[in-house]
């Protein structure tokens, strides 16, 4: 942890123990997690229910105080309210005062963030148009649907054009078109050098847009890596081809061809050399090679494997 503001978020050895009135520890929500979120990246923060995601976010927003460890935003400790000057936040569970209208809410939130009414009005109008809520700006927030509330929640988080967005389940309750638009918005923000810290259960969203992800379980970070690395399954390559059955049987001495119907087969090779040998053999046998694909899994599969089978902490990645 250098604390010089090179990273958008820095978390070091964070522990959170919820105690009862007498100080007896009841729940260990976080068990010494450490990671950093670099400026300008989209960072996915994943974990099953009760893993400690929301606790981490609440510590970052200074709603709760950690039992041990440090958290910093833009190089400032989170208990310094100045660190939130360039932060937009959307909680998972939130309400806005029911008497507020959409436009007034954005004005109030923008003013609280230190922006003048004129700046807020201009930016607020753009955001309302982006979220296709310009017509609803004069309506009270209490009349909004779940998806609209989520949109206005995102709009208030973005009202001050923050450098860092911390979002807890941002697309919850939204329709697919809105979800897609918002994903593109995050990518656009990334291009402008903004950082997006995304906590969500919708793994396909993270897979599509995140640069790196941290997977947390039982209060511990069990994996941090780039999405690309997580999705790559070692050096395995799947070679698919068509070949007569008798010739295909010859391959069984070395490999395990899997019949895919008719004369189509696929073989999973274990290394680059193995792959080269197989392709040479297939050429020799006159096989028609259909594809050579490094098999990829999806984030959901990785997530399930890590959460269900392994809680081993990826220390090397935590240090990275």
């Amino acid at each position: 942890m250098n604390g010089n503001g090179e990273n958008a978020i820095e978390i070091q050895n964070l522990e959170m123990v919820y105690s009862d009135l007498w100080g007896h520890a009841r729940v260990r929500a976080l068990d010494g997690i450490s990671f950093e979120v670099k400026k300008g990246e989209i960072f996915g923060f994943l974990g099953p229910n009760g893993a400690g995601k929301t606790t981490t976010i609440h510590i970052l927003m200074n709603f709760i105080y950690p039992t041990h460890g440090k958290a910093m935003i833009h190089g400032l400790p989170v208990n310094n309210s100045k660190c939130r000057e360039k932060v937009g936040f959307l909680p998972e569970l939130f309400e806005f005062d029911k008497f507020l209208k959409g436009k007034k809410l954005l004005k109030y939130m923008g003013n609280l963030a230190g922006f003048s009414s004129n700046e807020v009005e201009r930016h607020g109008r753009d955001l309302l148009e982006f979220f296709e809520m310009a017509e609803a700006e004069g309506r009270k927030v209490k009349t909004y649907s779940k998806g609209m509330k989520q949109k206005i929640g995102l709009a208030q988080a973005m009202i001050s054009d923050p450098d860092l967005l911390i979002l807890d389940e941002p697309t919850s309750g939204m329709d697919p078109i809105a979800k897609s638009k918002i994903k593109h918005k995050f990518l656009e923000l990334k291009k402008r050098g903004k950082t997006v810290f995304l906590s969500t259960h919708i793994l396909s969203d993270v897979q599509q847009i995140a640069d790196r992800v941290a997977i947390i379980n039982k209060g511990k970070v069990i994996k941090i890596d780039t999405v690309e690395n997580l999705l790559r399954k070692s050096d395995d390559t799947e070679v698919t081809f068509t070949l007569d059955k008798p010739k295909a049987e010859q391959l069984r001495e070395t490999w395990k061809p899997e019949n895919k119907g008719d004369s189509a087969y696929s073989i999973l090779t274990g290394s680059k050399e193995d792959k080269a040998r197989l392709i040479a053999k297939l050429s020799e046998l006159g096989a028609d090679i259909i594809s050579v694909i490094p098999p990829r899994t999806d984030l959901e599969e990785i997530f399930m494997q890590l959460v269900e089978n392994g809680t081993e902490i990826d220390k090397s990645n935590q240090q990275a």
Partner: peptide, 14 residues
Amino acid sequence: RDGTIFPYLAKPVS
């Protein structure tokens, strides 16, 4: 109790 405090306290307000 109504949860309105959280978006407000997330702004740079002590």
